[in-house]
Amino acid sequence: MSHTFIAIILIILAPFLGGLVYGLERVIRARMQRRIGPPVLQPFYDFLKLADKRRMVVHSAHAFLGIMHFVSLWYALGVFLLGGDLILVIFLHLLYTALIILAGYSTRSIFSHLGANRTALSIIAYEPVLILIAVSMYMITGSFEASAAFHHPQPLLYKMPLAFVALLLVLPIKLKKSPFDVAEAHQEVTGGVELEFSGIYYEAVYTAKWLDYIFSYTLVYLFAGSNILLGIGLMLFTFIYLNALDNATARVNYKQMLRFSLGVSFSLAFINLLINSLS
């Protein structure tokens, strides 16, 4: 039962942990660019400031979708951490993205539309890979439950290394990191779907980004099975890898992203699935 207890604490603390991860990431990124960078608690300062801003709403549905964007991700994360069905988790995660896409389309801003288009395309890029990874896990653990993977005696990484590589290749798309950050490319669409949010409603979108970090790092942790040390090592590795990648690459356009993701990441995950099903 202690596992459930830890999971519940993690779920409650998830936004704070995510904020810390985001703050750390901003510091690390600044240091990699030879700057001092903001304090680690900077995301929380942003949080407090955004709570104080005057509320400007495009229309009520837009603001509602923004808040539901946050709530649905927290729910998906809850299901995930409590060891729920992986496929359900992935589709709840899809719902979270679908809500922000709807919000993007519901305004008249052209950049918001473009951002929604690009977010939809990035779903096409990473969602199949996530599903293939879930199916591979099913092949090994015999269950779609995430808890089965968390309690698996041997780390899944050893049996599905290619899937891990595929996950590493799609995580930048999901977390909107440099080579694949077309969805919120600041110089092109100035934030994309987030463009029209302001004040406390932007806060929901902003905080959902923090939760997304926790979600992604939990996905990484899944590969360690019951080996906690390996899990922490994998998460650290992913953290450094993501920031190094972010700082070493330019943004590609969405066609190149789709081609790369469906060509390389998807095939890696698929080969991994074939190997798992044969052995």
Binding site: A30, I36, P38, M56, G191, L195, F197
Partner: peptide, 15 residues
């Protein structure tokens, strides 16, 4: 490096 003070160049008036 004005990001020391937490400043970001947002480019978006609403934020």
């Amino acid at each position: 490096d004005i990001e020391r003070f937490g400043m970001i160049n947002t480019g978006n008036p609403k934020q």
